[in-house]
């Protein structure tokens, strides 16, 4: 998923002796493969991950890993495994999340199967480093998102990011990782960008997979950056793994007026974010999700209500296998004009 391959790969290569196949970047071919063998109205991440599994199996992989979450994501793997078995592949699989909750002991036992020498200490140490890597990446990403629309030399942010990722991939221990992070942080700060007074600001909220996988949202962030819009995005892996439960306890109190209970997956989080973006007087909100994402569909009317109360324009995107990039561009252009005009008036 996006660039998070790097820490995942680091973790796996250190806790097991297996050869890691780098999953190919998601392309139209992946999507086509995934759609061909998936049920019709399952949500898109299912199709993307199934497509990726198929490509990996073709490349010779024999261990597959799937995560899970608090919606139907938690049940993906069982059906995916059945589909792949029906297609005649053989493999072992590891499911990181069962019944919507992480079960550390079970993961450990599963990992033991592929690497009998694995010890708890090793697992914890390398998990720690990988999680730090995720954190640093998210920090840098946050910075990039803010300024990429205003870079002097086109592509300079992304080029440096590529370099950083490949250097992160070679990490040996925690200290070397930390030094690398500091080094690249300085480098990023040196990249020249135009200082614009009061740029348009947009917050991106929505379903987690579509937000994090650049192919799934047709590079929405880059498209927005090309208009010179500053972007705020909340969901990242670090948030999901380490911050969510703590943050949401606080946030639930803030949104009491609208929502009383957690709503499944990231739905309530998005209500809280909408409220925050509105109160901070952002110029617009973009809500993205994959088609048929049940929790997000259900929460849309609530988000709509908040945005209306504060008078903040909001644009909804629902992605599936047929979304065209051009149509999306038209809608963003219109949305941009709307925000511009609203500011002038």
């Amino acid at each position: 998923m996006g660039d998070y391959q790097v820490p995942a790969q680091y973790l796996l290569s250190h806790i097991s002796k297996v050869k890691i196949l780098k999953a190919p970047k998601i392309t139209n071919k992946t999507l086509e493969l995934g759609c061909k063998y998936s049920p019709d109205f399952v949500c898109m991440p299912f199709k993307y991950t199934l497509g990726t599994f198929l490509e990996c199996l073709e490349m010779g992989a024999n261990v597959l890993i799937q995560a899970g979450g608090g919606c139907r994501y938690g049940y993906y793997f069982e059906l995916q495994m059945q589909i792949l078995k029906d297609l005649g592949y053989s493999f072992t699989y590891i499911n990181l999340v069962s019944k919507g909750k992480e079960n550390v002991k079970k993961i450990y036992q599963d990992l033991k199967q592929i690497n009998p020498k694995l010890s708890w200490i090793k697992l914890i140490y390398h998990t720690f480093i990988a999680s730090k890597m995720v954190k640093y990446m998210d920090h840098i990403d946050h910075y990039i998102r803010k300024y990429i629309g205003f870079e002097e030399e086109k592509g300079s942010f992304l080029a440096l990011k590529e370099k950083m990722l490949s250097s992160f991939a070679k990490t040996k221990g925690y200290i070397s990782l930390y030094l690398k992070y500091k080094k690249y942080q300085k480098k990023f700060k040196k990249i020249p960008y135009r200082k614009v007074q009061n740029p348009l600001r947009i917050g991106i909220i929505g379903e987690l997979y579509t937000i994090m996988e650049p192919f799934a949202n047709y590079q929405l962030e880059l498209m927005l950056a090309s208009y010179g819009i500053s972007i705020k995005r909340y969901t990242n892996v670090h948030y999901l793994l380490f911050e969510k439960s703590r943050v949401m306890k606080k946030e639930m109190k803030k949104i009491k007026q609208y929502v009383h209970y957690p709503l499944g997956a990231d739905a309530a989080d998005n209500v809280a974010r909408t409220l925050e973006l509105c109160q901070k007087k952002y110029d617009g909100i973009i809500h993205i999700k994959s088609s048929f994402c049940t929790p997000e569909i259900g929460v849309m009317p609530i988000i709509d209500r908040i945005a209306k109360e504060y008078g903040v324009p909001i644009l909804y995107f629902s992605f599936d296998s047929e979304t065209s990039e051009v149509g999306m561009q038209t809608r963003i252009e219109a949305f941009y004009d709307l925000m511009e005009r609203k500011r002038k008036s």
Partner: peptide
């Protein structure tokens, strides 16, 4: 999970 909160809002 969300029907109640949804209904309350609309």
């Amino acid at each position: 999970l969300l029907l109640y909160d949804l209904a309350k809002n609309i």
